[in-house]
Nucleic acid binder design. Structure first.
Lengths: 342, 342
DNA sequence: GATTTTTTTTATATCGTTCCAAAAATGAGG
DNA sequence: CCTCATTTTTGGAACGATATAAAAAAAATC
């Protein structure tokens, strides 16, 4: 377990001061080239490993960034995580990962743990039901924070997400273009900003197209595959007639697909289904999912990029950013069954 | 950005020494109950946040553990990550996440970054082609390390993985029980330990059942959905007749399924398919995948548990642990088509 | 060669905690 | 009340780096 090599050891081995060594290892331009080279060689040769904890104690920057998501087993969050990690890896930052599984207590523990680790900043997909209060710590401590894909009302924090309203709007317009007579929104946590926004887009489209409210149905709650399955079974039991389904997200859509597979209804022909997210596997389903691409990896990258900007002090004012999304037409809407619809 | 609250501040506010405060916050039993309570209340009231970097500088324990996987976008690694994180979260450890995407240089950067963060230990799913040399740093620095699901030859490190040999063996025996006349192994990185082991299990089964070597085919390389798709197209072009396919893993199997969907062959009827892993979505595919359950979350948990043991000094001798797996019969093998096979 | 300017190096204090050994307080036994 | 054992508290060094300001060395100017 031989004692660790420190900058002092390098300094001693060369007869220079540890200040000089520190400067070299920080990549400072102040030190003479010849000296720099000597130091680097000695560091290499001695097997020196930079000690970030020690450095951060004095410099007040850890290079650690926290990422808190629901669960990486959910492909959407996995893609988000992937995007974040990809960007930050290149920037030589270290990612502390936490998963709250929609448990507020777990989320609280995670945030606290990351504060103890003195993360320079934090990217959070807040758990359902997170209140402004739950984030008060972040505000009083003034930790650079970006909320990702889920907003919290009455709180002044940066937010990056997809434009849910326009996404849902485009999707529902397309459903209606397929001559579907009624529209059903399946899944999602009713009352959350994300659900409200999708509902708003849906409503705007149905109103524009004069679909009476009686022909619009909202079926919550839950954003899992299982809940998509269950809700659809309910729906089938209550009777389906030429409907257009907007799935809260792809995961829910997979459950919907599963339930319909066991029924007499054929997706695309008897009904149209469009969801939101465009996770990687959605194009491989049968039928391939028509879905609104929110580009999760890009969302992750943008959040990470944004966070670094905030940390660098270049974004004083809290911003809310909606990334554009794009309706991807595949099979589940019915575009391969009847004539294509623009 | 008001200055931070330190243990000294708590101490001053109560007129005790910072040593006492430190003891309380470490949960030491040495301090009197009344004092403990005072300190805890004051800490709470002042909004104190423990500084782990400072603590670890002196105590030489960071509570940070590194996890390096290929990519969390791959559901198998996501489930592994989930298991690890779940276990360590409860143990109050912080997980530093890294993804190498099978890039050796990236992996090297990640390992180095984690060493700089002074992780107490490391769980690694090594990138393809990782040599003993690439891990020499870990050995000389004597960092507690667990290799997860992928072995590296000629290196003395703890390893936890699934029993590939028996998994492949059981799967292939089942394929043969379905009266499939030839056996094809699709996907995987040929030459890696994991591939060799699965091949060994396959070979043992085919030899036992007197399938001549001429009726056994190995199709590498690649462990992605796309490679499964491509290899299967090749296979179809070269002609299929009553074959049993062992897919290297579920992801590859998804590609295989995709390619066959476009062909005249029906999985289960014209051929049998069994894969390895049992990722969550495999039961939802059409047909549902028959697959060898390796229980990825459990592998992750066990790796984490094991790592903590090693860190605690309770596992001096390097161990290689194979977790049991279990063949899960669903549809893709054909058990729903013809009579069930035991 | 003396003076000024620029480049390079360094000494010292400091970050917030834990460790250690010793001091102080408390309790028990006579 | 004194002694001894036990419990509780404490001061100060230490961990390994960075920041700061000043010193030393080198280069430029006259």
């Amino acid at each position: 377990m031989g004692n660790e090599i420190t900058q002092q050891d390098i300094a001693s081995s060369l007869g220079v001061s540890k200040s000089t060594v520190s400067l070299v290892l920080q990549g400072s331009p102040l030190v003479a080239d010849a000296t720099r080279k000597k130091v680097q060689e000695s560091a290499e040769q001695l097997g020196y490993v930079y000690n970030r904890a020690a450095a951060s104690l004095r410099s007040r920057q850890t290079g650690n960034l926290g990422l808190i998501v629901s669960s990486v087993s959910n492909p959407f969050f996995a893609e988000l995580t992937n995007g974040v990690e990809q960007f930050l890896g290149v920037e030589e930052k270290t990612v502390l990962l936490g998963q709250h599984s929609e448990d507020l207590a777990a989320q609280k523990r995670l945030i606290n743990s990351m504060l103890e680790s003195r993360v320079d900043g934090l990217i959070i997909v807040p758990a359902y039901g997170t209140s402004a209060d739950d984030c008060s710590r972040l505000l009083t401590l003034n930790i650079p924070t970006v909320l990702l894909t889920r907003r919290i009302s009455k709180i002044n924090l940066h937010y990056i997400g997809s434009d849910n309203v326009s996404g849902a709007y485009e999707a529902v317009r397309h459903l209606i273009a397929h001559k579907r007579k009624s529209i059903v929104l399946i899944g999602g946590q009713v009352g959350t900003p994300a659900h409200n926004e999708r509902l708003e887009g849906l409503t705007r489209a149905t109103q524009e197209e004069k679909i009476p409210a009686s022909r619009v149905k909202i079926m919550g709650n839950g954003a899992t595959r299982q809940s998509g399955f269950n809700l659809t079974q309910e729906l089938i039991a209550s009777g389906i007639d030429n409907i257009g389904i907007l799935a809260y997200n792809d995961i829910v859509a997979l459950g919907i697909l599963g339930a319909l597979k066991e029924s007499k209804y054929k997706v695309g022909r008897d009904l149209s289904l469009i969801s939101i997210d465009n996770i990687e596997s959605s194009k491989f389903e049968t039928p391939a999912l028509s879905t609104v691409d929110v580009n999760a990896p890009e969302l992750g990258r943008k959040a990470a990029e944004s966070l670094l900007q905030i940390i660098a002090g270049k974004e004083k004012v809290k911003k809310t950013v909606f990334l554009n999304n794009k309706l991807i037409i595949r099979e589940s809407c019915g575009c391969n069954e009847d004539k294509k619809v623009s």
